[in-house]
């Protein structure tokens, strides 16, 4: 379990189920926020910390699956653990295709829920780290001049300076200068590292 991943959102329209879920999750040491409907949840500003969502499928108005679709449009995809009173296969396929971490059928064991939550939180922590890294790389790439970007694109294809110079119709020396700038701005120690960064962007 990641050290900071301790926030769990619970969305269920059934008061007593919501309350009991909240108890289980709280007792496991998580911070819990509960919502009686999808609308209530959407009204809350998105969390910047790792978190996950325990979501009831069947709810009046906006259902759990509807909420999943809505959330799919956001920048960050919060991991969802679905819980349902009576799940059918098509419903669970839809949910899992939409990226759900798990699909639990009520009544379920505490352990199954907590395991799913732990996995969801780990995933969110991982996702967030990746997202942060990619964001960082993208930020670095933004510093490149148009010419440097051209050189960057060609370097990662494995071309040597001479080939790049020929390709761009500039001198080999000039390419060398641009290349050094790219390596510096992208904070890459080697071409291999630069290639990895290029993949991430």
């Amino acid at each position: 379990m990641m050290a900071n991943a301790r926030l769990v959102f619970i969305v269920d329209d059934d008061d007593s189920v919501r309350k009991s879920l909240s108890r289980v999750v709280t007792a496991a040491g998580y911070a819990v926020e509960v919502f009686a409907s999808a609308h209530e949840f959407l009204a809350r500003p998105p969390s910047t910390d790792p978190c996950c969502l325990v979501l009831d499928v069947r709810m009046p108005g906006v259902t759990g699956l509807d909420l999943q679709k809505t959330l799919a449009g956001a920048l960050h995809h919060i991991p969802i653990v679905f819980v349902t009173g009576h799940g059918d296969i098509s419903m669970s396929v839809t949910a899992l295709k939409g990226g759900a971490v798990d699909f639990l059928t009520k009544p379920f064991d505490k352990k199954a829920l907590l395991d799913a939550i732990a996995r969801a939180l780990a995933k969110d922590t991982r996702d967030r780290a990746t997202e942060a890294r990619i964001g960082d790389i993208k930020g670095r790439a933004k510093l490149l001049t148009p010419r440097e970007r051209q050189v960057f694109a060609l370097v990662v294809t494995g071309m040597i300076n001479k080939q790049i110079a020929y390709e761009l119709g500039v001198g080999e020396k000039t390419v060398k200068v641009h290349r050094a700038r790219v390596m510096e701005k992208m904070r890459a120690g080697s071409v291999a590292e630069l290639v990895r960064l290029a993949d991430a962007t």
Binding site: D14, S16, S20, V24, G85, H86, K106, P107, D109, K110
Partner: peptide
């Protein structure tokens, strides 16, 4: 029926 049963089990 599952709603109360879930709550009971959790609780």
């Amino acid at each position: 029926l599952n709603q109360p049963l879930t709550a009971i089990l959790n609780n």
